[in-house]
């Protein structure tokens, strides 16, 4: 016979408020609307919530379901009881040991914390790349932008723009789309030479501390350069 499950409510880390797991009445609307249902054998949003309500938190935390889930919130939108599924499933990511976070997102988060962007691109490399792309924009055959350059650390600009490190690293031409819009609009814009990363992997890896630090840096850049509007093309 299977061992009875003892529910220990006093030591719960997830679903601790009535808004979370306990109000679930197991209707399964979440699971039927979830595109990730069936992708990880044995798991769907309903089972995750039920497991948490029954005190089997660690099993959900150890499963890969919270990581295959894209946090799209379809489940939460349709839940008749208002269970906060996204917060709960992301909560499972928070409770993973950091060295067991799948893929590169934890390493990227730490790289960002230490060096200002997820891929560790040095300041001088970025500045040279941005300078190099200016003349390419000016002389573009299809849509030339004479007079274009990337304004870096421009105090008092109207808009400060974050960058996605994959672009300076691997797809630099993709930054030109936004730049051409700024050129045509004669926008007064700038980028920061440091802590310019727009990707916030702390959100995805379940690292609240670094999530907050990253957001703080974007704000700090805007304040330092006295820019009132932040454009976050993520």
């Amino acid at each position: 016979m299977q061992e009875p499950i003892t529910i220990d409510r006093s030591n719960r880390r997830l679903g601790t408020s009535p808004e979370l797991a306990d109000v679930c009445f197991a209707c399964g609307t979440c699971a039927s609307g979830c595109p990730a249902t069936g992708l990880v054998p044995g798991w769907d949003p309903r089972k995750a919530i039920r497991a948490i309500a029954l005190g089997l938190e660690q099993e959900v935390i150890d499963s890969k379901f919270p990581w295959v889930c894209t946090l799209c919130a379809r489940c939460e939108y349709v839940c008749p009881m208002g269970v906060q599924l996204v917060k709960t499933l992301r909560g499972c990511r928070i409770l993973r040991e950091r060295d067991e976070v799948p893929g590169p997102i934890h390493k990227g988060t730490i790289m960002n914390f230490e060096r200002g962007n997820n891929l560790g691109i040095p300041r001088d490399d970025l500045l040279f790349l941005l300078a190099d792309l200016g003349p390419e924009m000016e002389e573009d055959e299809k849509q030339p932008c004479p007079g274009f350059y990337v304004p870096v650390d421009k105090e008092g600009a109207n808009i400060i723009v974050t960058m996605n490190s994959k672009e300076p690293f691997a797809e630099p031409d993709d930054m030109k789309f936004w730049w051409r819009i700024f050129y045509a609009a004669k926008e007064d814009w700038t980028v920061s030479s440091t802590n310019w990363e727009g990707v916030n992997w702390g959100l995805f890896s379940g690292d609240d501390e670094n999530w907050k630090i990253q957001v703080g840096r974007v704000l700090e850049n805007a304040r330092r350069l006295k820019v009132k509007t932040i454009l976050y093309p993520e």
């Binding site: 890969k64 990581w67 295959v68 889930c69 894209t70 946090l71 799209c72 799948p102 893929g103 590169p104 997102i105 990227g108 992997w201 959100l203 995805f204 890896s205």
Partner: peptide
């Protein structure tokens, strides 16, 4: 690919 899934190994 949302929620970081693009960068996950799955």
């Amino acid at each position: 690919a949302g929620g970081g899934a693009w960068a996950m190994p799955y």
